[in-house]
Amino acid sequence: MSMQERVVKPLPPAEALQRLGEVSLGRIVFTSQALPDIRPVNHLLDDGQVIIRSHVGAAVVSAVQGLVTVVAYEADDINPVTHLV
């Protein structure tokens, strides 16, 4: 198998939501005590909104409660043979 050049390209919002709806596990990224924190979470889509399951004492809830903060979310389905999305 030859190495293929990998190209990163933005997806239209509708396609991104469709792909996100095809997987149930992702990673949420946020800041905790001025450091980046990454946590695996389950998610679902509801009318275009990403909903993650958490509990009241979870680090992500504590980090964003009452604050204006940047939160990133990503999810993918990696092919176990090719290691590509």
Rank of each mutant, 00 (worst) to 15 (best):
A34N: 15
L35T: 00
A16L: 05
L44K: 06
L45T: 00
S24R: 05
V7Y: 11
N42Y: 11
D76R: 02
A63T: 03
I28E: 11
Q4C: 10
P13N: 10
L20G: 13
K9F: 04
L11Y: 01
K9P: 03
V56Q: 10
Q4R: 14
L20A: 15
Q33I: 09
G48R: 08
V81F: 10
D77F: 05
V41G: 05
Y73P: 13
P10D: 01
V85C: 13
Y73C: 13
T31Y: 02
V50L: 09
G21A: 12
V64G: 04
I51G: 03
M1W: 05
V7E: 13
R53E: 09
R27K: 02
G57Q: 04
H83Q: 14
D76W: 00
S62N: 05
P80G: 15
G26C: 08
P36C: 08
A58Q: 07
A16E: 00
V68Q: 09
V60S: 08
L44Y: 01
S54T: 14
P13D: 12
T82P: 11
V60C: 07
P40S: 07
V29E: 12
V29L: 14
E22H: 04
L25R: 14
P36G: 05
Q33F: 11
I52F: 15
R53F: 08
E74C: 03
P80R: 14
S24I: 03
L20V: 13
V29H: 03
A75N: 09
E5C: 09
V70L: 15
I51N: 04
E5Q: 13
D77A: 15
L11R: 01
T31S: 10
H43Q: 06
M3L: 11
R53H: 12
N42A: 14
E15K: 11
Q65F: 03
H43T: 00
L20M: 15
L84T: 15
P13M: 12
P36Y: 05
M3F: 01
T69L: 08
V50E: 04
N79R: 08
G66R: 08
V41M: 11
V8C: 06
R6N: 11
A63G: 04
